[in-house]
């Protein structure tokens, strides 16, 4: 009853914020933009057939086309809307929840209720997740529906993007909750979280760089091992799109990655990354290990925040 009340309260808090509605409008706008595009056996129709782009890659009916469309949706979800833009918007919306809970006058009543402070903190934490769950559900349902309706490509596996988006947000929100308890200030916790996010992103990117250019910059793999260890400990945010690709059946997402990063020569796009290498990278992701180790780190952050919250005098 108590945790549910906190979740409902977070929901009410969320819908009271303008950013909640801005995110919904963005979701609708993205789905609307997707609806302006459709695919047929020969390629892509833009603006309800105003322009037609010939493409074998996106040809409806082929397995390649299906995977390409799935990969495109994943890219839209993670790179554009629910990716860093969406996560930042969600952080803006939720960064104030913990500091608001701890503000003088508000916290007094809350901690005087017959529930442990851990439960109270956890309830608020879950409430922030519920906010993102709502946004992700709306967005993914919309995009999946538009992909099915307009792109003739029903990929129900895309619904995996809902929990994965929440998971990605939770990796980052762990920092936000901790900084919220430490600073009791929404803006400070938001800025510190963004810094921490960069701190999480950097080892992952560095590791990829060391792997890709191993022979040129790190032949004895010294840096690769050090950064790899750090990457293993920290939340693996960059694995989420790859996990989504695997779960959503976008097996050829590697081709998308390879082709999109390619250069156009004589009117034909040549991939600069070997598609096989990219595909190997996709299949390299161990979902269980990636999620479990990331959640373990998040768990440490949340536990630390909860312990600090329990020990505080207000």
């Amino acid at each position: 009853m108590q945790v549910w009340a906190l979740i409902v309260d977070s929901f009410r808090d969320a819908i009271d914020r303008k950013i909640f509605w801005i995110m919904l409008v963005l979701s609708a706008a993205t789905a609307g933009a997707m609806a302006c595009v459709s695919f047929d056996a020969e390629g892509v129709n833009v603006l309800f057939g105003t322009w037609h782009i010939d493409s074998e890659f996106y040809a409806v009916g082929s397995e390649t086309g299906r995977s390409a469309i799935a990969a495109t949706i994943i890219k839209i979800v993670f790179d554009l809307s629910i990716g860093w833009v969406g996560i930042i918007l969600a952080l803006i919306a939720t960064a104030g929840m913990v500091p608001a809970m701890m503000s003088p006058g508000a916290v007094d009543i809350l901690v005087s209720k017959p529930m442990s402070r851990h439960k109270l903190f956890f309830g608020k934490y879950v409430g922030a997740m519920a906010f993102v769950l709502m946004q992700a559900t709306v967005f993914v349902f919309l995009t999946t529906f538009v992909a099915g309706w307009r792109w003739k490509c029903w990929i129900l596996e895309l619904l995996w993007l809902i929990p994965l988006t929440v998971l990605l947000f939770s990796y980052v929100y762990g920092f936000c909750a901790l900084f919220g308890v430490l600073t009791r200030n929404a803006m400070a916790s938001l800025l510190l979280t963004l810094v921490a996010w960069v701190g999480v992103w950097a080892p992952q990117t560095l590791y990829e760089t060391f792997v890709t250019f191993e022979e040129q910059i790190d032949p004895d793999q010294r840096y690769q091992r050090a950064v790899g260890a750090l990457k293993w400990v920290l939340p693996k945010t960059q694995d989420i799109p790859l996990i989504a690709g695997k779960l959503a059946g976008a097996a050829l997402m590697s081709d998308v990655i390879a082709t999109e990063s390619g250069t156009v020569t004589d009117g034909k796009k040549e991939p600069t990354i070997d598609p096989r290498q990219a595909e190997e990278r996709l299949s390299d992701v161990n979902i269980a290990v990636s999620i479990a180790s990331s959640l373990a780190f998040e768990g440490v952050l949340v536990a630390a925040a909860s312990i600090l919250f329990r020990r505080k005098d207000f």
């Binding site: 009853m1 108590q2 808090d13 608001a100 003088p104 006058g105 508000a106 007094d108 809350l110 017959p114």
Partner: peptide, 24 residues
């Protein structure tokens, strides 16, 4: 408490319901 603060987004009825739910 002195100088208590309720979430501004809650209505009076919701305030009573929310805090009473926390009080089981």
């Amino acid at each position: 408490p002195e100088s208590h603060r309720f979430p501004g987004y809650l209505t009076g009825m919701q305030v009573l319901d929310f805090y009473a739910a926390l009080a089981r």
